[in-house]
Simulated assay, not measured.
Amino acid sequence: MSGTEVRIGAYVLDCPDPLALARFYGSMLGLPVADDSTDRWVELAGDGPTLAFQRVADYEPPRWPDGLPQQAHLDLAVDSYEAPHALAISLGATPLDPVEPPAPSFSRGFRVYADPAGHPFCLCTCD
């Protein structure tokens, strides 16, 4: 790699419990937690950009949709909503918009949730 190439090293989510949040996203994405994880830093193992979780002592969850400190969110691509919605809920996610379970007539390309640490994320059928 030359000195001018830049690439993503990791996408990191601050949280109060990195292992718990890594297990949530690992279960959503079908990825294991990396063996070299610590109490302060946990990564998911797999190909592609790294998704990591960092312990923050005075963590304050983002407030969706208008509050600070939300600065980013994850879009998780899905083919349909029913099974991914059920999985997210079973793992501790909270539906934010809409709050009702998905219906076959739902036509919007995304649904918004909060992960167990309060970070917004979307299940998206849009490519």
Rank of each mutant, 00 (worst) to 15 (best):
C124R: 04
P18Q: 03
F110T: 03
D58Q: 14
P116Q: 05
T125K: 12
S80G: 14
S37Q: 08
A77G: 04
A83P: 05
Q70C: 06
R40S: 12
L29K: 13
G92F: 02
D115P: 05
L76K: 00
S80L: 04
L76C: 06
C122I: 13
A86N: 11
G46A: 09
G9L: 08
F106E: 13
D75G: 10
T94I: 15
G30I: 08
E43G: 06
L68V: 03
V78D: 05
A77T: 10
T38L: 01
D14S: 10
L76D: 06
T94W: 00
M1N: 11
G67T: 08
A20C: 01
V56N: 01
G26V: 12
A72F: 14
P16G: 11
V33W: 11
S107H: 09
I89F: 01
L96C: 10
P18I: 05
G109M: 05
P62V: 09
S27K: 15
E5N: 12
D127R: 12
L29G: 12
L31D: 08
L96F: 01
A22K: 07
S105H: 09
D75I: 07
S80M: 04
P69C: 03
G109D: 11
W64G: 01
F110I: 03
Y59I: 11
Y25D: 02
L76R: 06
I8S: 06
L96M: 15
G118T: 07
I89K: 11
I8H: 01
D36F: 04
G48T: 04
L68Q: 13
L51F: 10
E60G: 05
L29P: 15
T125D: 08
D97N: 14
A52I: 06
G30A: 13
C124L: 07
D35A: 14
F121R: 02
P62K: 00
P95C: 02
E100W: 09
V33M: 10
A86M: 01
L96V: 10
M1S: 08
Q71D: 12
Y81W: 05
G46Y: 11
E82F: 00
G3F: 12
D66A: 11
A45I: 00
